[in-house]
């Protein structure tokens, strides 16, 4: 389907925090209580609209387990947005945020938009991490923050879409070099704002035959 832009996202965070469930809720609008452990990487995609423009989100869902860390690290490159997820019912997942953030900062491009997500907000009775703590961490590190529930779908749309809005604004401000695919942004064939190569060629930016 035609789109104005394609943004690449990556979802990271400890194992079991609900990364795959967030993706499934966003792409398929459903919740799967028992989910196989993600090994390696899985993909999802969905079209959203921002400022009247069709934007395709291409989302990479990674394995949270320590043993896959070196593989996961290698996927930061070329992402425009990252959802860093922790579980409000497990403090250790919050404590590990610093490590995740260091990893992300070190291996991604510097303009990558990072959204901090406190997942499982439906499990209020088992909460171990206060909302204020998450907000403070986000403020301190310059991240956007949101509490979500992949189970009830609360704030899930918003988390993905607000990240896209932030990226979109950065494009408008000229922060992102949209002609460099390593930034995780591709211009689609229907982009009304032609780059130097013109809209038609830009649509085929990813492809050249040999």
């Amino acid at each position: 389907m035609a789109y104005a832009y394609l943004f690449k996202y990556i979802i990271i965070g400890d194992t079991g925090v609900g990364k795959s469930c967030l993706l499934l809720q966003f792409t398929d609008k459903r919740f799967q209580p028992v989910h196989d452990l993600t090994i390696g990487v899985e993909f999802g995609a969905r079209m959203i609209t921002i400022d009247g423009k069709q934007i395709k989100l291409q989302i990479w869902d990674t394995a949270g387990q320590e043993s896959f860390r070196s593989i996961t690290r290698s996927y930061y490159r070329g992402a425009a947005g990252a959802l860093l997820v922790y579980d409000i019912t497990r403090r250790d997942t919050f404590n590990h945020l610093t490590t995740w953030l260091e990893d992300a900062r070190q291996h991604s491009n510097s303009n990558m938009v990072i959204m901090l997500i406190a997942n499982k907000s439906d499990l209020e009775s088992r909460r171990e991490v206060k909302k204020e703590e998450g907000e403070a961490f986000a403020r301190e590190h310059g991240l956007i923050f949101m509490e979500t529930s992949a189970k009830t779908a609360s704030n899930v749309e918003e988390a993905f879409i607000n990240t896209a809005k932030e990226i979109y604004e950065k494009i408008q401000e000229g922060v992102f070099d949209i002609n460099n695919e390593a930034n995780g942004i591709k211009i689609g064939p229907q982009n009304p704002m032609p780059g130097p190569t013109g809209p038609h060629n830009a649509g085929q930016a990813g492809g050249s035959c040999c």
């Binding site: 990487v41 993909f43 990479w60 930061y76 490159r77 992402a79 695919e181 390593a182 990813g206």
Partner: peptide, 8 residues
Amino acid sequence: ADHIARPI
């Protein structure tokens, strides 16, 4: 088909 991140 991402030549930059090369997902396995």
